[in-house]
Amino acid sequence: MGFEQILFWLLALGVIVTSALVVLPPGGKNPLYGALLLIVSFFFMSGLYVLLFAHTMAVLQILVYAGAIMVLFTFVIMLLNLSKKELGDETRTIAKGVGVVAVVALAVKTALVIETQTLNIPAKPLPAGFGGVDAIADTLFHNYLVPFELTGVLLLVAVIGAVVLAKRTL
């Protein structure tokens, strides 16, 4: 096994274990542990992005996800400072169990299907500068200019909406 493959398995194991711990007890019981584990998982994930030659996206992942979104999460969790009672009970119903089992079964089936179905896709060679800022900016401003501008509007609406929702009185 080559160096890249060993690196891939280490990063994949890290991202899966930390993400599972966000949902399972350490993170599921206390959201603050969950948020910190999720930050660790985002770092592993950006390592996987680097293995996919998506260098710019790896940097953006850490800047925006770990740097901005998760800081917002930890800020709100620490602001609320929830007690056991305020977190509420985790009820165990049959419907929930069925849902989780169905999700796991679907994931196993999908994993088996993609293993056989994607082997025939011929990989195209990567163009020069693949994954760099130049290539992303080129595609973004030539092919996706209107969606890009709409994203700006979306973020503005989200900021105004968050202020309105979080205000004590309107």
């Binding site: 999460f73 195209k124 994954g131 992303i136 080129d138 989200a158």
Partner: peptide, 26 residues
């Protein structure tokens, strides 16, 4: 995106990150 050798997947990822930021704020 790596498999097809084009950048469109990266741009969609960029949009997903922007929408995730908006979703987290709301």
């Amino acid at each position: 995106a790596r498999e097809w050798g084009n950048m469109h997947g990266h741009v969609v990822t960029f949009f997903v990150i922007a929408v995730a930021a908006a979703e987290a704020a709301i």
